[in-house]
């Protein structure tokens, strides 16, 4: 185990809401969590699992019901709102009305905790804003109105704002929701870069399981009425804990493929050969309800010689060559049907 000091550490943290009659609605009762500098942590969970509640509590927007949060070695309660604004930057799902200001002006709002009563920017502030826009990859749009941006560019602008805030910790509530595929990947790559290059501590909630497994240094799996599980994606998958979080109500997590499905394919078909070709052959097999397996006698076996050369060996040792996955699937379907 690596020995490091967590940037945020919670002990027996209870998150939820205080109700009017003095009672408390506890969403999660005893969270022991750690966030580390230089890491991207992804918070995964279904709707209603309490992701936003946890993020809001860690961001200081709502009070912890019980337990404690240590922020950079100090108790969270010892921080004033002004201290928090220097320590934690946020990117939220809240709708903004910032269409009528420029990207530069929006990023400059991140300097609010540093500027005086009228918010006048000094040279140092301007330098920080320019570096932030550069780091977030949105400097080329600095003089554009926020309303002219795509969703992905808006997200970058909000990230530039948190960078201008110069906080060691960045919390993001579903930063990839509503983004198209390329923007989602760009955003995640950007966050990873910031974690590695600027040693930021980054926590984000997401529904994007594939991206979280791919890009997250650490996952937090949150589910109602269940203790939170944290670890690297691979450890969680290999230990089966990842699967157990999703294996319910007809949804299955296949740890061999990292994919979710409604029914796990059982009918095995042997696949071997070229790495990339066999990966995508496997993908097509799963979609059609077959389980890609190691080549074995008695199966239909596929030898992928190249992306356009697939050799099918039927159980009777009869061999066929096809040139596309489309043809491959129709051959297998025909064989299975004839059986």
């Amino acid at each position: 185990m690596r020995q490091r000091t967590p940037v945020i550490e919670t002990r027996q943290l209870g998150v939820g809401y205080s109700l009017k009659n003095g009672k408390k609605k506890i969403v999660h009762g005893c969270l022991d969590l750690s966030l580390y500098a230089g890491e991207v942590t992804c918070l995964l969970g279904l709707n209603g699992a309490g992701k936003s509640t946890l993020l809001r509590t860690l961001g200081g927007f709502q009070r912890a019901l019980h337990g404690e949060i240590n922020l950079l070695g100090k108790r969270f309660n010892a921080y004033s709102p002004a201290d928090i604004s220097l320590t934690i930057g946020v990117v939220l799902t809240e709708k903004t009305n910032a269409g009528g200001i420029t990207v530069y002006e929006l990023a400059s709002l991140g300097r609010h905790p540093y500027t005086g009563f009228f918010g006048v920017l000094k040279q140092h502030d301007r330098d920080v804003i320019e570096q932030s826009l550069e780091a977030a990859g949105i400097a080329h749009k600095a003089n554009n109105y926020v309303a002219e941006l795509s969703d992905g560019e808006r997200q970058k602008t909000m990230i530039a704002k948190t960078l201008a805030q110069e906080c060691p910790i960045i919390l993001l509530d579903e930063p990839t929701a509503f983004l198209d595929v390329t923007s989602r990947i760009e955003t995640m790559v950007l966050l990873r870069k910031l974690a590695k290059e600027q040693q930021k501590t980054i926590l984000l909630s997401t529904h994007d399981m594939d991206l979280a497994i791919q890009m997250g240094d650490r996952l937090w799996l949150l589910e109602k009425g269940r203790a939170i599980v944290s670890g690297t994606p691979e450890d969680l998958i290999l230990s089966g804990e990842f699967g157990s979080f999703f294996n319910k109500e007809g949804i299955l997590f296949d740890s061999s493929t990292g994919k979710l499905n409604t029914v796990a394919p059982v009918d095995p078909i042997g696949v071997e050969g070229d790495f990339i070709a066999s990966y995508w052959v496997g993908n097509a097999l799963i979609r059609n309800g077959w389980k890609p397996s190691p080549v074995s006698y008695g199966y239909i076996n596929i030898n992928c010689l190249g992306k356009e050369q697939l050799i099918i060996t039927l159980p009777g040792q009869k061999q066929l060559e096809v040139n596309s996955i489309d043809d491959l699937i129709s051959v297998i379907e025909k064989v299975k049907h004839d059986k």
Partner: peptide
Amino acid sequence: LLIKPLNALLLGEMYAANLGV
């Protein structure tokens, strides 16, 4: 005197709160 918080409020109350308003 309210110009600074008004600008922060363009982002909404939670963002503004996070900026120390």
